[in-house]
Design a binder for these strands. Structure first.
Lengths: 134, 134, 134, 134
DNA sequence: GTGGTCTAGACCACT
DNA sequence: GTGGTCTAGACCACA
């Protein structure tokens, strides 16, 4: 598995790993029940510390996105049910608010933002039915 | 000046101060040439250390949003010109991509996101002419 | 007397005043024995604090460039003798070194720097004989 | 790493650190990708507070000269691109003007200034190709 | 181990 | 009065 990691980014590497695995699942490149590379293997190919991969896997498991079967390995969960966690939604709203503010100061208007949202949605879209509940 | 700070948040306090002052300016609660509270005063009302406020002010100054007149105090810049920093725009796109992914896992669809963007834009909108260039 | 002061600059206002009066003298706009405006008058026209003007005058007097006659006012010194203060020359060298370094990082080469030096020298030049000793 | 710090200088210590590291890089004593001493280590050898070193490093990073990899340390940027910041160039011109004026009062003529510029340029020169773009 | 954040408290220059 | 600098010492997240 190849991920695009930027060690200079502000987002911690383990979080980048989480993000990109979530993306691979949405794009159905990783499908339910698929086996993930072992911590050691992934840390080897990504040239990062095993602890970092481990932390990423733990976070993904906490979110119910992957599951560890002892002695067998780590797998994408068979069914990922979106849970409308009140608190997380509040956080997301807050994040969007900040996004709009930052965009303002960069001279980016609402229309452009909406356009980008649509663009990225389409990139993922179509086959992420097992996650979306509509 | 009253700001809403959450010491348990992941975003550092100085950054929360930066964010909220930028918001106050967009909402024109703080207007160009207005004097900001002194470092000591604000640190007093917010119950945080003066150095923390100072760091926030310095960051805002570096962004060209406020100006400090030595011995006199700190003021909102007369004209805030949005600069379309290539790198920051790239970061913002990346952030939006991540937002869309996270939203997916929370069961939030594109339409809802767009709606929220519009909502927050409207909250700020109308009177932020000195920042937006359209 | 009109001076060009920038309250946002990093250089303190009193220092800007010192600089510009020295410049006016080099350009012979202010000539030896000329009377300078009083502290009160200058602080009035420049819209700055009298203490600030006072500090500038004190510094100029310390440098032997102006003289105060009690009850009569402040005057440009009759003869300004350049003193090759070892320490100040060392400081100047240090300053030039830093200038060359900073220029490097701005992509400005030695030739351009030299050109600018010449330009500013010419702007002052020709009639600053009462200061230069060659 | 040994730096020459003067606690009595007007220029703040953190800025002296910034200056001297920039100089070391120009002289290629510090080369691209080289690891800088850790904040704690440098603060130890320089006998200054870690926060002061930290501030210097942060400033250097903001200038794109060094990069920090979280948990790993701080490194000289692989490629340092000189950016001709309009405002900074204007400041530099202003600084040069002031330099010429001060030189006049010290009895230093244009020729000497030019000579010094050349001298310092040569001291740095020859191997600063990764910064200069000519 | 690394850097980042925050606090407390001191001193200084500028206006 | 203002902000800027520096120190001392603490805690935390990241790798």
């Amino acid at each position: 598995m190849i991920l695009n990691l930027d060690p200079r980014s502000n987002t911690p590497i383990w979080e980048q790993v989480v993000h990109q695995i979530k993306e691979l699942i949405l794009k159905e490149i990783l499908q339910p029940e698929d086996k993930l590379p072992s911590v050691r293997e992934l840390s080897g190919t990504l040239l990062i510390n095993p602890n970092t991969v481990s932390k990423a896997y733990q976070e993904l498991e906490r979110q119910g996105i992957i599951e560890t079967l002892r002695g067998k390995g780590t797998f994408v969960s068979a069914s990922i049910t979106p849970r409308a966690d009140e608190q997380k939604i509040a956080e997301m709203k807050q994040q969007i608010k900040q996004l709009v503010i930052d965009a303002s100061y960069l001279g980016i208007d609402q229309q452009t933002l909406t356009l980008w949202i649509k663009k990225f949605s389409d990139e993922l879209g179509g086959h992420n039915d097992h996650v979306k509940n509509d």
